[in-house]
Amino acid sequence: MAVKPQVLEEKEVYISPYFPEYVRPKIEDPGLDETIKRLTPEKIEKAYQAVFGKETARIKAIIETCIHCGLCAEACQWYLSNDRDPTYSPVAKVKMSAWELIKRKGKVEPGLVYHIARVVFTECNICHRCSLYCPFGLDITFIIGLVRRFCFLLGVVPQRMFEMNQAFMATLNQVWISQSDYIDTLMWREEEGMYELKNLRVPLNKEGVEVIWYPLAAEPKAGVYHIDRIAKIFQVAGVNWAMVTINDAWDSSNMPMFTRDFFTMQRIVKGLYENAAKFRAKKLVLTE
């Protein structure tokens, strides 16, 4: 079925100086445009050494086994949606990012770092569909993830993504909610819900429960109806459940995972696990 876009398109075009076949609309993003100005060859090489320097067996196996057959292309929704433009295929994304870095042994210019960051951050969803169609079953997205790590170490990350990462670094949730606001919201929803279901409860910090439910931080902030619905379903089903408000560890969305910020990522998961273990929950249910 033919469908047509209804929004004005970007006028300017970006053509990569390194790969002339890569033609895209120019989109301004301070996280990419401004940060590359701060880069020096030493910084880039240091980041390269930190990520690809050891040449582990896992990286080598993926890089050297790939025979560039292009079967992964048909699996990628970016490739299929853009009229089968070869520069959108997973193999091309790896070619333009990781292979180029390894070929040049990390001695690359800031312009190429911009190009690489653009490819790995805005044209790949790490959805693992390409691995399903790879004749060797190579984990292509693992390589994309490594390149994201390389860009993260240099700070070349799309602005909105990096801002979210900073919110996690500071507060362990993605929308800067303080503990008092969080508790306040949950108690408010309990109060409101009582008119819809008898004795509705949003239990906080209860020990020995069957289920601990961790929301997404955007839920108490902008989508409180999710908390209402969960409370209603659990009340009707008679589940012994609770929500946790202590130690700031209650947001189950792990955005640093996408920028490969391993340290913050680990802090979040550790906090969630420790809270669940502290309240001796049998099940840990995350948000949808």
């Binding site: 876009p5 929004v7 398109e9 970007e10 895209r24 609309p25 989109i27 301004e28 993003d29 951050f121 805005t122 790949c124 969803n125 790490i126 959805c127 799309p158 602005q159 909105r160 993504m161 979210m164 955005m255 996408f258 920028t259």
Partner: peptide
Amino acid sequence: GGLAVLAQWLSH
């Protein structure tokens, strides 16, 4: 993959 938050890239 974190693309949900990229508002500038919406039409892309």
